[in-house]
């Protein structure tokens, strides 16, 4: 089957999405199912069939999600209802929308910052409990409680640790 001429092709838009919390690796297929379920649950099969959401690329924390042109707003509302993926509590933050994947890849290269700072993998105390610093970007510090069970993830700032 030959490809259609550009004027007859479906017009698409691509959304650049940041997955939070930092350091979580999400399977692309699992994310596709989560996006599809969220769109269908919120808008129903008829509108989801018009949006045609698809996860087309991922680069660490960033993913690119495709939709039909004109449905970006509907898709972004549906994406805001995603709270878990593969049994992990996550949130999707929309950063940009574009008509080409290349533009978004360029944007990822521009905004991507080097990984965790030197504080990473250090231990710290918070609320009389021992935590391991998992991520540290700017003033934001994500810590994981040390131990075999109840190893909760907490979201703190540098000031929270200095206060103690």
């Amino acid at each position: 089957m030959s490809t259609r001429p550009p004027t007859l092709r479906m017009k698409r838009r691509y959304l650049l999405i940041l997955i939070e919390p930092a350091g979580i690796i999400i399977d692309q297929k699992g994310l596709y199912y989560a996006v599809s379920e969220a769109a269908t649950s919120l808008w129903g099969d008829a509108v989801a069939a018009i949006i045609i959401p698809a996860v087309v690329a991922s680069d660490g924390q960033y993913v690119i999600i495709r939709c039909q042109r004109g449905t970006e707003q509907d898709l972004s509302v549906a994406l805001s209802t995603i709270t878990t993926c593969c049994d992990t509590h996550i949130t999707l933050r929309m950063i940009a929308a574009s008509g080409t994947i290349d533009t978004l890849r360029e944007k990822i290269r521009r905004i991507k910052k080097p990984g965790g700072e030197s504080l990473s993998l250090r231990d710290c105390m918070f609320d009389k409990k021992l935590f391991k610093i998992d991520q540290c970007v700017g003033q934001k510090i994500d810590v994981i409680e040390k131990g075999f069970k109840n190893t909760n993830r907490l979201f703190l700032t540098t000031e929270d640790l200095e206060e103690l």
């Binding site: 939070e20 919390p21 707003q73 972004s76 509302v77 805001s80 209802t81 709270t83 509590h89 996550i90 949130t91 933050r93 929309m94 979201f155």
Partner: peptide, 13 residues
């Protein structure tokens, strides 16, 4: 913080 949503998305919601 994962349950917070941007103002723009809340407007859509």
């Amino acid at each position: 913080i994962l349950d917070l949503r941007p103002v723009r998305e809340i407007t859509g919601l």
